[in-house]
Design a protein around this nucleic acid. Structure first.
Length: 796
DNA sequence: GAGTTTGAAACT
DNA sequence: CAGTTTCAAACTC
């Protein structure tokens, strides 16, 4: 959009605007606008939730219609064709959805950026269309709904705009995403949520929005809010900043920009059109724009971009992401991955049956690719999840479960093999979350490691050929198993309880599972989400990684040692009594980490040693073991360290699928620390406090050194010390935000959308904190899915 | 493969 | 919050 035009329009008082020929023209336009492509339509649909809502919010002044706005927010995204149709039919009919009509009304152009933002985020989360517009509903957005190219998408009308199938221009594959986008998208999205939900500085500008330069406003704000570290993103940002159109990578920016543009366009063009469609059109189809100037510009921009096809794809991707993020949580991961591959120009032949497989395959891929993949797999984390976080995982599995591709391949590879801090740019927090989500499915939700194992050892080669569930399990544990590879054998829980590994991991059960009466399938998505939500309500960290790895690169022992178990701890600690923490019954042992103060185990002989509750990335703590606890452990501190080192190596071995208990997952997964162990039994006074920065996300916290807490040594055994082992991270600290242990900035963050924390600092590093929060979000597919206000983990 | 053990999760 | 029950993984035979 041209700023000039925009400013013109925007600057035009609403009343005037209505009077303006443009306005009339727009009104008369009606259903003419062709949709370039099904995909675009699809995208539009997907975005509708955001855009529409955003538009609504935008167009309806918060002041004027607070209630409506609220409603709008609550509204579910329009994903459905049906909705759109209805909408289209109803557009102009105030009766249907007052909101819509309101949104449409030019008079309401006053908007607040904040409203817009919040709207976007909210919509994603969940909206129940039925509430407000019965006619509009659509089943809660199913992933399937978003399939681009599906016949469904070829809707004749798009919010009052007639879609011309014939016009399908280039059907831009939505799937094409930049690799970069994957992780960042989430970030952005989360950031958006966080930022928006939290405090958007721009709120202040609400009233001013009208007449303001949307682009500048958005771009500026967004940029400020969202920080894109990656160089790749920088470009996107540039574009955004310059054009307001987003480039890649900045989903948020793009979204915002889109919204803005949409608003502008609408102003300029059709007030009646829903933003989603509109935005979509704007971005993709310049023709849509009535405004010649803007149109030209768009064309120009697009033309420039279009040739490559990449830009548009990116745009689409962004949009899609935005759309999918909440609604299609599960899809995101798969999509993002696909996109990544496509972006990478990977051989299409490389189908990604499953994340797990992908990951495995990633080995073969170029480093870059693998990295990207890893990033995606990361949380998805999540997020986090990362949440992301988590959801992604679900997505992964979903894809699998959908039968498209069985995850037969274990992730032998370290999800983040190459990814080091360096790679951060590639690695996206959620990507890792979320793709925790991400696509995090690959990662084991339970273990989030910020460290990227440098080596990917082929060990992973151990693939899971899974035979019987038991066998599978064993194999997986040996290292072959990645998240995607998880399998369960539930008989009574219906795979809707944490007893179910798949469910606990945030993934859908898939073929390898031998479960009975399984509800943990995409088909039962709602049930799954509801259950998840319920569980999360009980324990926000229920789906958080159980093992938190703190160390960053090299902080701990030295270089390689980083990954050693020493740096990791079990979130809540174990409660073993008979296994002496020498069997997999012990979660600590299973996770390849030493027991910590948090543990209440008896007769602990954890091979990994007892670690003080210190956060993983913390210095190698000398393990203080009780004499009893780890006989094996070295007695002297020096020895201890050595021992740790040894352990570390051991872990690595494990990691690599060797003997050690560490499962591949672990490697795959980002070890994240949970800010709070809500459930953590022992809440111990903590060391953590040390690490935590008073500030929200104490940046410091992130850093290892900071993180590491000198811990008093206490032994679990016998007398349990009740100091807080819990890594500060885990514990809820007074500080609003829990420090994340993530040592390296690069490590994936699960951005916690929920928290207001947001995108605050331009520095991603600053984001670490976010990550922490994100963790909570990460698990929460449900949260996203549902409108319910996300639990504020930080506070909990 | 069946049965037992174990400890987390869930329930009361 | 503690105790008990349920559950499924881990383990053994």
């Amino acid at each position: 959009m041209d700023t000039p035009d925009r400013s013109k329009i925007a600057g035009t008082p609403l009343s005037k605007f209505e009077e303006s020929p443009i306005f009339n023209f727009i009104n008369n336009l009606s259903p003419i606008q062709p949709v370039k492509s099904i995909d675009s339509v699809h995208i539009a649909h997907t975005y509708q939730s955001l855009n529409f809502a955003s538009l609504s919010s935008i167009f309806s002044s918060p002041h004027a219609n607070p209630p409506r706005e609220t409603r709008v927010l609550s509204r579910p995204p329009f994903t459905d064709t049906t909705k759109q149709e209805n909408f289209a039919s109803n557009v102009g009919e105030s009766s249907l959805c007052s909101e819509v009509s309101d949104a449409v009304r030019p008079s309401r152009f006053t908007t607040s950026t904040r409203g817009t933002y919040s709207t976007c985020s909210l919509n994603e989360a969940a909206v129940d269309p039925s509430d407000q517009c019965p006619s509009l509903h659509s089943p809660f957005p199913q992933s399937t709904q978003y399939n681009s190219g599906s016949p469904d998408h070829s809707m004749p009308t798009h919010f009052g705009i007639k879609m011309d199938p014939n016009l399908d221009i280039g059907h831009t594959p939505v799937e094409i995403h930049l690799v970069q986008n994957g992780g960042e998208r989430r970030k952005i999205l989360f950031a958006m949520e966080a930022g928006f939900q939290g405090n958007h500085p721009h709120e202040l500008n609400k009233d001013e929005v009208v007449g303001c330069d949307w682009e500048s406003l958005i771009s500026d704000d967004v940029e400020s809010l969202l920080i894109f570290d990656s160089s790749t993103e920088s470009e996107a940002n540039k574009e955004v900043g310059e054009k307001g159109m987003d480039g890649d990578g900045n989903s948020l920016v793009s979204v915002l920009s889109n919204c803005t543009e949409n608003a502008d366009h609408q102003q300029t063009t059709q007030p009646d059109i829903s933003l989603g469609a509109f935005v979509h059109n704007v971005n993709q189809d310049p023709s849509m724009n009535l405004n010649e100037d803007s149109r030209k510009e768009n064309e120009t921009d697009h033309a420039a971009k279009m040739p490559s096809g990449t830009c548009q794809a990116q745009v689409d991707n962004h949009q899609k992401r935005g759309m999918h993020r909440r609604c299609l949580v599960f899809e995101v991961a798969s999509v993002s991955k696909r996109n990544m591959y496509s972006d990478l120009d990977l051989n299409p032949s490389t189908s990604f049956p499953s994340k797990g497989k992908r990951i495995c395959d990633s080995n073969n891929l170029e480093p870059k690719i693998s990295r990207s993949l890893c990033a995606l797999s990361g949380i998805g984390l999540h997020l986090n999840t990362l949440a992301t976080t988590s959801k992604d995982r679900m997505a992964n599995k979903e894809t699998l479960s959908t039968g498209k591709q069985p995850i037969s391949i274990p992730c032998s590879i370290d999800p983040f093999p190459s990814t080091t801090a360096e790679d951060n740019s590639l690695r996206k927090p959620f990507a890792a979350e979320k793709d925790l989500r991400l696509g995090g499915s690959e990662l084991d939700p339970q273990i989030i490691s910020y460290d990227a194992p440098k080596d990917d050892k082929p060990n992973n080669s151990e693939e899971l050929n899974q035979g019987s569930p038991k066998k599978k399990r064993r194999k997986s544990e040996n290292g072959g198993e990645s998240e995607g590879c998880k399998r369960c054998n539930c008989k009574k829980s219906k795979c809707l309880k944490l007893y179910c590994e798949c469910f606990a991991a945030g993934v859908y059960c898939s073929e390898p599972c031998s479960c009975q009466g399984c509800f943990n399938k995409p088909i039962h998505e709602e049930t799954v989400l509801a259950t998840r939500k319920q569980i999360e309500s009980r324990n926000p960290l229920a789906f958080a990684p159980k093992v938190i790895r703190t160390h960053d690169s090299g902080l701990d022992m030295g270089d390689d040692d980083k990954k050693t178990p020493a740096s990791a701890r079990h979130k809540r600690g174990c409660n073993c009594k008979k296994s002496n923490c020498l069997k997999k019954y012990c979660e600590c042992y299973q996770g390849g980490v030493g027991c910590s103060i948090n543990c209440r185990c008896e007769g602990c002989k954890n091979l990994y040693g007892r670690k003080d509750g210190i956060l993983p990335g913390v210095e190698i703590e000398q393990v203080e073991k009780e004499p009893d606890v780890c006989e094996k452990e070295i007695e002297s501190s020096d020895d201890v360290q050595l021992h740790h080192a040894a352990n570390v190596q051991v872990d690595e071995h494990h990691t690599y699928g060797e003997v050690l208990p560490i499962t591949p997952y672990q490697h795959c997964r980002l070890s994240v620390e949970m800010p709070f162990s809500s459930s953590a039994k022992p809440t111990r006074p903590t060391k953590l406090s040390i690490g935590r920065s008073p500030g929200l996300y104490g940046f410091h916290m992130l850093q290892k050194s900071e993180i590491s807490l000198p811990q008093p040594k206490f032994e679990k055994n016998g007398s349990k010390v009740y100091e807080d082992d819990t890594p500060a991270i885990l514990k809820p600290i007074a500080s609003p935000t829990v420090g994340v242990n993530i040592s390296s900035p690069n490590r994936k963050r699960v951005s916690p959308p929920h928290n207001g924390v947001g995108p605050s600092p331009p520095n991603r590093k600053g984001c670490r904190k976010l990550i922490l929060k994100s963790i909570p979000s990460f698990p929460s597919l449900t949260v996203d899915a549902s409108n319910e206000s996300p639990v504020n983990y930080s506070n909990s």
